[in-house]
Amino acid sequence: MFDTALNANDLIFLAKGAGMTLVVTAISVFFGTVLGIVFGVFRYQVGPWWAAPLTFVLDVFRSIPLLIQLVLANAFVTTVLGIRISGFTVACGVLSLYTAAYCAEIVRGGIESVPLTLRRAARSLGLSWRQDMTNIVMPLATRVALPSWIGLALGVMKDSALVYIVQVVELLKSTQILITRLQEPLFLLMVCGAFYFLISFPIARFGGYLEKRWSHD
């Protein structure tokens, strides 16, 4: 099982795929988080009625399979709008919005966890809305939100395996390509799975540790 036809070039090919997974994840998590914070604060600030359209759109992103979102976005941009655009851009765009949909929920939960009396106290001490947000709400909300955010970021990394559908060769797709050539599914899949696991597991553990530690006080 372990005498394999895998050579150095194939390993580089796999490493490139892994790099692509990480790049797509990093871009999507970054933009998704920025958007998610904006959406989350907006939703909290304007109240449920005015935020209803946004809530609905974000809910749609969470109720439709990512695979279909990717196919739809790709078809919409390339054939309906007729814009020539790389699959990579489509993948990052869709994953960013997907991340934002979940992140908005986490941000809102974080803000809601800050006691209203505390914020009123801050405002009555003369802090502006902005000062209240950055100096009072943000530090406290981060404590509540960070563990879930870590979980979200890892989820996006795992979900980024789906971007193969828009012709982005990431880790799982490059593994698949090698499998068709080398016919060693078990060994290659284990390498691929080990990569995901080695990134995801320590970070997930760290998130669990933070959650446990911060929930005490």
């Binding site: 979900d159 395996a161 696991f197």
Partner: peptide
Amino acid sequence: ARNTPALF
């Protein structure tokens, strides 16, 4: 189950 993609 929790640390690898479902697709995988």
